[in-house]
Amino acid sequence: MSDSWVIRNLRAIRGRAYPRVIGSLREPSWVFFDIALPLLTVAAYVYLYKFIDAPKEFVGFVILGGAMTAFWLNILWSMASQLYWEKETGNLSLFLMAPVSRMSILAGMAVGGLFFTSLRAGSTMAIGIIVFGVSLSLSNPLMLIAIFVATMVALYGMGMMLASLYLLFGREAYNMSNLLTEPIYLVSGFYFPVRSLGFWTAAGASVIPITLGLDALRQLFYPATGAQYAFLSIHLELVILSVLCVAFMFLSKASLDYMEKLGKTSGRLTLRWQ
């Protein structure tokens, strides 16, 4: 008896998520690096803020931003670049031959990536809070969860879209991901309130879901002073993030179909070491 289309695709999601979930726990030394490395940057920025006598909530801003870098790096290196790596290792053609939707494979990557990145980001944040003695407010936990979920769904939708755009890349993939690291940390306000970049720059950067997500999380964790540095109201940010969730899902499907077709006609889907 053949499986239904839905069951087959759910299995594909589980199958693609599985190596990421298992892999996240298989090599403890990688877990150490994934947690410790962001902490080093966080520590440097915390001490910089201390050097310039910043208000103490900025230490919390840096820890939050440092934890969220894990998600952006995961988007760049484990979502956007993933189909490129799969091409280089010879798996991509197997994915394309499998009798499942490509979207299920991307969704599996997203689910698995979200799981292991959440563990790392949570650990980075917890250690940062303990080491630097930061206190955060949890006065509106439901909104906190809603903002975080909306940010992650939109962000991983964006990652799925980027994965298909990267499909035809050779070494550009590595360099492009490198290029999209610091500039995005800058325009999304990972380590300072995005509002200080000016309205239009912040508005443009809001296409990247993490910009609004971070801004809203700062307001929720610091209700007393967060609004002073806020770009938009939390409710408006939640609405925009919800729109981005739908938009990126649609765009990822459209771009995947287009790039796959383009890759087949140009014969670049199995080309390695470009």
């Binding site: 910089l48 803020y49 910043a54 940390y185 800058l186 309130p193 540095y229």
Partner: peptide
């Protein structure tokens, strides 16, 4: 890439 990395610090400084 290097200019963006530096501007992060510049804005951190300018906010304060």
């Amino acid at each position: 890439k290097p200019i963006a990395g530096t501007l992060i610090l510049v804005f951190m400084y300018l906010v304060i």
